[in-house]
Write a protein that binds this DNA or RNA. Sequence first.
DNA 1: ATGGCTGTTGCACACGATGCAACACACTCA
DNA 2: TGAGTGTGTTGCATCGTGTGCAACAGCCAT
Lengths: 251, 251
Amino acid sequence: MSQTVDRALSILPLLAEGPANLEQVAQRLGVHKSTALRLLRTLHEHGIVYRQQDQRYRLGARLFALAQEAVENLDIREIAHPHLTRLNEKCGHTVHLAVHEENEVLYIDKVESRYPVRMYSRIGKPVAITVAAVAKLLLADLPEPERRALAERLDYPLYTPRSTPNAAAFLKELATVREQGWATDLGGHEESINCVGAPIRGTDGRTVAACSISAPNVVVTAEELLALLPLVRRTADAISREYSGKAPDRP
Amino acid sequence: MSQTVDRALSILPLLAEGPANLEQVAQRLGVHKSTALRLLRTLHEHGIVYRQQDQRYRLGARLFALAQEAVENLDIREIAHPHLTRLNEKCGHTVHLAVHEENEVLYIDKVESRYPVRMYSRIGKPVAITVAAVAKLLLADLPEPERRALAERLDYPLYTPRSTPNAAAFLKELATVREQGWATDLGGHEESINCVGAPIRGTDGRTVAACSISAPNVVVTAEELLALLPLVRRTADAISREYSGKAPDRP
DNA sequence: ATGGCTGTTGCACACGATGCAACACACTCA
DNA sequence: TGAGTGTGTTGCATCGTGTGCAACAGCCAT
């Protein structure tokens, strides 16, 4: 829409390929040298491009600081919330959002079930890290040594007979989760409650959060809950897309 | 130099702070709404900014991708990274790599401390140039007139009582650093944080980068940190050897 | 309906971006 | 040494394009 800005921005992907001098830039933009010079100067003043000793231009490391700051200020919760609400509207069950922080996995958002029978949980509360679906999703993505170290360090309380019994079983489960891209908790925490969850990923593909739906089996059976898996995964993917700044999928 | 581009680029740091709507952007730029709209539209077309559901703008995926490429194109970083990781494995503290760019010294890589207490820093972020160990190392190597000119031009904020107070003190410190071939920052930036660093040199012997380890004195005392100096220097030398060894003369 | 609040569009005007040509500077040849 | 190339840089007139304005369009409250 704005020619000048349009041209200036076109320089960036060009420089991303590698350093270039003034004339090369001018040529690839299809403008006069002097025009390219002015554009580059402006980019330079803002620290977006950097001029190396041989006078050629390349992208500045400062650009990275900008992106980094933006990522830090990104609030997953804010972005995810409308998606979670929609998920809840579709299936009616309790929806959770969780993140991994300091050797704990915490619920950071929740949309209550619309059924009268609800599961107990609280935003900010650490989840049962060895059994919860969201915990498995978040930990499955850790680098192998850290994952192993953490697994060794944990306690494995037997909330129910179906709880994860020990580190070996936990690591095996994490491998499965990592492989399949989704996770469940079928009565591992509370005998009567099942969960199914999916990962939310950032630009770099790493899991930054996880969401899940939970329901007591007096309301839906485990099979019926598993049938909702595609819905959960689609929601998680939509949040991932929006979080990483890609165009949202419009039907 | 180019007003339009200048305005457009001024939007980026603004959005890095967090999402903003059209009017907020227009106001902070000091331009009419319609002007801001056109600028944002152009940025949007290039994927630099992204528009979320609530119509507010934030930085977009393309910017993250560009930033990524910007740092990846720094070949020192690629060579140094495994060495930095190894250094971190040996000592456990936060390891930094920094370069001098446009009157600033920027962190371009970082390996986090394995201790729970970490220092805050960010890749791409300019360092406190008058006190940081890596900054002293990089500036100590400048030709004398440039060094003097730069020293005169800088501000000397008193982060702590131990911060470098003025140009004269700074130049004296640089001379010492140049002489001894290593540098420290003992509580000059944050009262409780100490650093020790060493220079990485290219084929011609000039300092092209610097690495350092940083630790809060609740974890190790300054003396204990200084005992790690030989380790840091060996790392820096190893990187130097590898960097200058296979240095292909870039056209 | 009514008002406030936001983003959007069309338009006339003038300002600022543009290309040109001339210049400056560093190299490389004979 | 000097002409000859390849750069980046500057001043300037000209015209294109970015600009602010005002009016409009949605949306959501009351």
